[in-house]
Amino acid sequence: MTTANMNYAAAYEPYYLDVAPMIEALQFQPADFEFKQGWLRHVPSRHLFRFGRKGQVTIDARCSCAGQAVRTEQGEELHRAFRAWHEYYWRPLEIDRDFASHFAEPNAWVRLFRDVRMAWRRFRRQAGPVTLPEEVMGIAPAE
């Protein structure tokens, strides 16, 4: 390879997307993101990110961002920031939402069913125990 070819190759290194702004956004604007079906979504930009097991990042966007690769070191740093965001922001939010859903007002059919069920239980509690006469049972008292 000639010196001119080596300079040409060195001048045209692959371009890597700088994800430092996203790492900061995960830390300081966690509400701008949501996680659904394995994809991290940045709500304002609608960019989607998926992380592989080894920290590799896949970007799905409607702009030129999607065609760019992320430098390995920054990908690992972004993956660590994502895991921290998921553990300390998203997971507690999911747990709170799930817990709150247990106490949401049910629809009219469910309320009707519950009312009927509770009325039946109250009715059964008020009825006295059923006893059968000894003659019907065919048991003679012990002497």
Results as ranks from 00 to 15, higher is better:
residue 100 A to S: 06
residue 137 M to K: 13
residue 11 A to N: 07
residue 43 V to G: 04
residue 85 W to K: 10
residue 61 A to R: 10
residue 103 F to H: 07
residue 69 A to K: 10
residue 12 Y to L: 05
residue 137 M to E: 11
residue 116 V to K: 12
residue 67 G to K: 10
residue 43 V to C: 01
residue 28 F to C: 06
residue 106 P to R: 13
residue 74 Q to T: 06
residue 122 R to V: 15
residue 16 Y to S: 04
residue 5 N to A: 15
residue 105 E to M: 06
residue 79 H to Q: 13
residue 51 F to W: 00
residue 88 Y to N: 11
residue 57 V to K: 00
residue 58 T to P: 00
residue 143 E to I: 09
residue 87 E to N: 12
residue 14 P to R: 09
residue 101 S to L: 02
residue 1 M to S: 10
residue 25 A to C: 06
residue 11 A to M: 01
residue 73 E to N: 06
residue 63 C to L: 06
residue 71 R to N: 11
residue 26 L to Y: 04
residue 17 L to S: 01
residue 12 Y to G: 02
residue 132 L to S: 08
residue 111 R to G: 00
residue 57 V to E: 01
residue 75 G to M: 01
residue 22 M to K: 07
residue 4 A to I: 09
residue 115 D to C: 07
residue 57 V to Q: 02
residue 113 F to V: 15
residue 112 L to R: 13
residue 78 L to Y: 03
residue 116 V to D: 04
residue 128 G to W: 07
residue 139 I to F: 01
residue 88 Y to D: 09
residue 14 P to T: 05
residue 89 Y to V: 14
residue 28 F to S: 14
residue 74 Q to V: 00
residue 115 D to N: 12
residue 26 L to Q: 03
residue 50 R to I: 06
residue 47 H to V: 15
residue 40 L to P: 02
residue 116 V to L: 13
residue 27 Q to G: 15
residue 28 F to G: 03
residue 91 R to D: 04
residue 100 A to H: 02
residue 141 P to C: 03
residue 54 K to S: 13
residue 16 Y to F: 15
residue 34 E to D: 15
residue 103 F to Y: 14
residue 13 E to M: 08
residue 142 A to H: 10
residue 59 I to N: 08
residue 66 A to V: 09
residue 16 Y to Q: 01
residue 57 V to Y: 00
residue 134 E to I: 14
residue 134 E to H: 05
residue 28 F to L: 07
residue 59 I to C: 06
residue 106 P to T: 10
residue 127 A to Y: 03
residue 124 R to Q: 14
residue 127 A to P: 00
residue 97 R to L: 12
residue 122 R to G: 14
residue 82 F to Y: 15
residue 45 S to R: 07
residue 76 E to Q: 13
residue 19 V to E: 03
residue 128 G to C: 07
residue 34 E to H: 08
residue 18 D to Y: 12
residue 29 Q to W: 02
residue 142 A to F: 12
residue 108 A to W: 03
residue 92 P to F: 04
residue 140 A to T: 15
residue 122 R to T: 15
residue 102 H to G: 08
residue 98 D to H: 08
residue 2 T to Y: 04
residue 62 R to F: 01
residue 46 R to E: 13
residue 137 M to F: 10
residue 85 W to P: 11
residue 48 L to G: 12
residue 77 E to L: 14
residue 50 R to Y: 11
residue 64 S to D: 11
residue 128 G to Q: 09
residue 82 F to C: 05
residue 114 R to K: 13
residue 35 F to A: 12
residue 110 V to E: 15
residue 48 L to F: 14
